[in-house]
Design a protein around this nucleic acid. Structure first.
Lengths: 212, 212
DNA sequence: GCTTTTCCTTGACAGTCGTCAAGTTTTTCT
DNA sequence: AGAAAAACTTGACGACTGTCAAGGAAAAGC
């Protein structure tokens, strides 16, 4: 094969791979929405296909099996979810502003992306039963922890203090609050959500210690 | 009907009800174990029956449907789970002792009843998707919050201080730590669990404020 | 001891599930 | 344009699901 022909074939192969990956991603996104709607326990391949523009058979053309598909969907979740607060950190110039904008973003995404968030907790819990999810869950959980840590440590910095707990503890505290707010959100208990919102600034302050 | 006959019939009726309830409870416990083993998504009635000494048909003799059965199982969980720390609170005479015994109990039940605990988180997450679980979940969550509050407020009392966060925030913080410890427990990451154990006393101290 | 009630098993039902093979449509290449 | 390859649909498979009715086994009542 000449060099030119070889390069051409490469280009073709790459384009095919790109197309393949693009469709995979498209189907993974449809999967993500279905999972967010129904939860892991009630999500079937036919239901996923109905949330896409294809028939159910195509899923086995692009994915080895259901696990492969859901794993890919989880990875899509990560892409969406894990840089949410970075802009807040980057643009805030005072501690008070950072805290306020974090709280605002926190409850904004709670209301906006509630179905997606409940899916995250669903999958994280599934990973307690199904080993095959664990690696991805741990990775995403780590990224979430990092994200929270960037916020809190920056807040401490702006405040001239230090975080008072480890990254892990800091994360689970805020994550716990989010989980509870989510539960009350779906219960329709707006008062409880509002109360959590009122309390959140004080909790953040608990997580940092002012120095002298 | 004579009074004697009436009373006798009452006694019989009561005995029948007792037997009926006893069997219901027995089957609910079998259900609980199956759920703890497999998780909500993978638990079927036939599997539950295999974990009992009966056949699958009997479940519809004692329960209206699957939801009824699982609801009863969740209630069983509550009976088991919600008074766990009360003895610690009752017998501890110093703040340090209370804190130490709480931490010990915390990680003891983590190792001992791990499957049951993951089930709790599974069902709580299911309630985000399935409205019919929500009432029971909220009730149990409330009892767990009360339980944690009894511990922390008593700790503050012994320390001569006050809780620094609301009952809700206090609960979600410790619950978040428990959830994370559970995840690492099932991952087999004993180091991470040990680290959480080391940090837990400091977190508890964060949750109370000494009064000058 | 016989009858009635309670308890439990068995087997079947209609439906859904993941998977896959066969075949059709669409796109790509020459 | 025709041939080859890729993309997609359709329909079927065996297995599994919750539910329930028919009937046998055990217990209770007389």
């Amino acid at each position: 094969m000449t060099e030119v022909a070889s390069r051409k074939q490469d280009r073709i192969a790459r384009r095919q791979v790109d197309k393949f990956d693009a469709r995979r991603t498209e189907l993974a996104v449809a999967t993500l929405h279905t999972l967010a709607d129904l939860g892991y326990a009630r999500t079937s391949l036919r239901e996923i296909a109905q949330n896409s523009e294809f028939s159910h058979g195509v899923l086995h053309y692009y994915f080895a099996d259901k696990r492969d598909l859901i794993t890919e969907a989880v990875r899509q979740y990560e892409v969406v979810c894990v840089t949410r607060y970075d802009e807040v950190v980057a643009t805030s110039t005072t501690a008070e502003q950072l805290r306020a904008e974090f709280v605002a973003m926190f409850f904004d995404t709670l209301g906006q992306d509630a179905p997606l968030h409940r899916l995250w907790y669903d999958l994280r819990t599934q990973s307690l039963f199904d080993e095959s999810f664990r690696a991805d869950v741990l990775e995403i959980d780590g990224h979430r922890e990092d994200m929270v840590w960037r916020v809190v440590s920056r807040y401490a910095e702006l405040l001239g203090g230090m975080p008072s707990a480890s990254p892990g503890t800091t994360y689970v505290t805020l994550d716990g609050i989010f989980q509870r707010a989510l539960l009350h959100h779906f219960t329709g208990n707006a008062d409880a959500v509002a109360r959590l919102r009122t309390e959140l600034p004080a909790v953040i302050d608990l997580l940092v210690t002012k120095v002298g």
